[in-house]
Design a protein around this nucleic acid. Structure first.
Length: 200
DNA sequence: GCTGCGATTGACT
DNA sequence: GTCAATCGCAGCT
């Protein structure tokens, strides 16, 4: 089965398949390669109160309503970019937020983009840190992750063993969507970000 | 047009 | 543990 066909399912079903996947960035002429260690699933309009797609399609979240296998990149808190992989159950929006990863190639480039990181395990330990290390910004919103000449490319791997996967509620999601256990991570991985409840 | 706040981070007590 | 930074979107007047 082609990789992109795996992404047509519901975000909560696709998310575990992205654990261990390799994401390659060639932004700015520098290559950084990352092994994904933590993800969160977000659903479609009317179904997931924690999702940007919950209310309706807008210019900002349009990529979530587009074809699967593309990037959804959004700007938040006035300073941070976050990267999602678009998935799509037929006729609905969905995306998987990439929350953390382990840099496996391009350590020098990664360190220069995040000089404040205390150690290599902190380079991509958090969704906005991950985009910083990869050089990802809004101009990649909507771009394909499966185009051989794209600046961002995703390579799936064999599904990881269930005993190495942890599941929890989503970080930073409050209100009606708070209880949904749609955060997936590799256990015993130091690059997984610390869980935080939604503020207040 | 105005206000509130967010799928966060880093600095600080 | 607390809090400010900083801006676009969403919702309301």
């Amino acid at each position: 089965m082609a990789a992109i066909d795996l992404l047509r399912g519901h975000a909560a079903d696709v998310a575990p398949l992205l654990l261990g996947a390799i994401l390659t960035s060639d932004v700015g002429g520098r290559r950084v390669r990352l092994r994904i260690t933590e993800v969160e699933a977000y659903g479609g309009a009317g179904e997931d109160p924690g999702s940007h797609a919950f209310r309706r399609q807008t210019p900002r979240n349009a990529a979530m309503f587009g074809p699967p296998g593309r990037a959804y990149v959004y700007f938040t808190y006035g300073m941070h970019w976050c990267l999602n992989v678009v998935t799509r159950p037929e006729g609905a929006a969905g995306a998987v937020l990439l929350r953390a990863g382990e840099v496996v190639e391009g350590l020098d480039a990664a360190r220069s983009r995040r000089p404040s990181a205390g150690s290599d395990r902190d380079l991509a330990r958090g969704p906005a840190r991950l985009t910083t290390v990869l050089g990802v910004t809004g101009d990649l919103d909507g771009s394909s992750l499966f185009w051989s000449r794209g600046r961002l490319r995703l390579a799936l791997v064999d599904p990881i063993d269930g005993s190495r996967m942890g599941i929890s509620a989503r970080t930073g999601v409050g209100g009606a969507g708070a209880g949904t256990p749609w955060r997936f991570y590799l256990t015993e991985e130091p690059t997984v970000s610390p869980y935080r409840r939604a503020a207040r």
